[in-house]
Nucleic acid binder design. Sequence first.
DNA 1: TTTCTATGTGTCAATTATACACTTTGCGAA
DNA 2: TTCGCAAAGTGTATAATTGACACATAGAAA
Lengths: 247, 247
Amino acid sequence: MNSKNKHQLNPRISADCVVFGFDFSQLKVLLIEREQVEGFDISLSLPGDLIFEDEDLDMAANRILNELTGLNDIFLEQVGAFGNPDRLSKASDKAWLKAVRQKPEERVVTIAYYSLVNMNNYQPQASSFAKTACWIPVHEISELAFDHYTIFQVALKKLKDKIKTQPIGFNLLPEKFTLSQLHKLYEVILGRDLDKRNFRRKMLKLKIVESLDEKQEGVPHKPSQFFKFNEENYTQLIQNGYDNFGF
Amino acid sequence: MNSKNKHQLNPRISADCVVFGFDFSQLKVLLIEREQVEGFDISLSLPGDLIFEDEDLDMAANRILNELTGLNDIFLEQVGAFGNPDRLSKASDKAWLKAVRQKPEERVVTIAYYSLVNMNNYQPQASSFAKTACWIPVHEISELAFDHYTIFQVALKKLKDKIKTQPIGFNLLPEKFTLSQLHKLYEVILGRDLDKRNFRRKMLKLKIVESLDEKQEGVPHKPSQFFKFNEENYTQLIQNGYDNFGF
DNA sequence: TTTCTATGTGTCAATTATACACTTTGCGAA
DNA sequence: TTCGCAAAGTGTATAATTGACACATAGAAA
C-alpha cells in the first residue's frame, strides 16, 4: 500500500439496480427513459443514483429501490462493481452527463444490484423516476445507457444461477400463486421448457409450497389451486445442506 | 439522479485479493503481516492496494496479484464491493492508516477478488509484500484487519459454490496431479468427506481428467498415476449446458 | 348440452447417487 | 529376502432421482 496519493483513483460511487418483475408470462426489467439531450435519442438506463457520503452501499441500493417503487424489504443482492475507466464515454452518455452532472468527466464506479419484486405490489411513485419508469421484457432489451447492458446481462446470469440453487423465485410472485404460475416463472427465467408433471412433483416433494384452501375464480377453465411458499420447510432444507434443485 | 453534489460520496477505491492455495493437505490463504503501530499487535490483512486513476478494477487486482506473487494470468474473479462507512474504524486500523495514509480518515470502498494459485509456482517477490506474506490455513483464520475477515468468508463461500459447478479446482494444482490430490482438494474445499471410488468414477466418466504415462516415484507405497486436466472436454461439457458436478 | 381451455394426475425406464472392502504396488525395516 | 506398511486402485448392488409421456377434469361461455 505504497502508491502515491496524487495518482490514486478518487471517483464517485453509484448504485444501479436491475429490478426484475414477472407478469405471469414474461420476465421484465424496470428501466428508466432518459430524456433526449443534444439530439441524441431517448435511451433506456437502469435506475440508479450516486451514493451519499455516509451511506452504506446496500442502504443506497435500498433507497433507490424505494424511491422507484415505494417498496421496502425487497430481495436485493449485489451483482458486483463496474468501474471500467471508459464506461461513461459513449457520446450520448457524455452529452447526458454534461447536462446533469456538476463534473461530467468525473469517473464513476458503480455497484450493481439486482432485485426481485412482485409486480402487483409495485406502485409508480411520485418520485423523479415516476413518469419514466417502464417494464421491458428481458428479451427486448438490447442497448442501454453506459455499461448498463453488460450489468443487466451479468445480473440475469446471476439470477439464472441462483434460482437453480435457491427458491428466490417466490419473490417475483404474489403470496398466493398457482403451480402453473411458478412453473411458467421457472421456464421463463431458465429459458427452456420444464415438464409440468416433473416440476410439480419436485416442488411438492420438497414441501416448499403449501396448498391453500382456495381456488382461482372466474377463469374460463378448470380453476387452479392456490399455494403459498413454506418458508420454514425451505429454511430447514438449506440448513441440511440442500442447494440444488436439479434444473 | 438529482442528489446534491456536496453530499455525495467521493472515496478512494482499493482492490483486495483473497488468494487461495492448496498444499495437498490444506486450503490456505495468502495474508500480509501488517507491522505493529502505536502498541497494537501485528495483525493480518488481505493483500490489497488503492487503485490508480486510469486503472480498470480487474487490472488493479491483477497488478496486486502480480506484485505479490510474480504470477500472471491467474484465475481471478470478483467477490464484490465492500463499502461500509465504518469498515476502517477499528482502533487498530485507524492507527495504522494514520501512519501510512495521507488522508487516513478518508472513506475507502474496496472491490474484493478471489484468486486460485498453484502454490508451486508461487515465488515470494522482491516487492513491498515480500517479507511479510504468509500462507495461513483457512480454518486458522480468525481476526483480520478492517473488514477483511468478512471479505474472506464471502470469498470462501463463493469458492465452495463455484467448485460444485465448475472445475476451477485445477487452478490450485500443478499441471500433473494425482486423483488422490484432486480428491483431497475437493474434500478440503467442501469441508466434508467424499467417497473415493465415487469421486474417481465421476471425474473419469466426465473425461475432464486425462491419464498421463507417468507415475509418482520414491513414495513408500504404491505409486500413483499422474493426470492432467482436459480443457477441451471441459469446454464442450459446459457448452452442452452441464453445470452441476453433483457434490 | 356442448365446446373450450388450462388444470391436474401416474407409471415406467434410464440414469445417477450412495454405500461399502479387499487387492495391489513399491519402499523400507528386520 | 521377506515382511510389514501405507496409500493406490478397483466393482457391485441398492436406492433415489430424473425424464419421457397422454388423458380425464372442472368450470365458463356459447
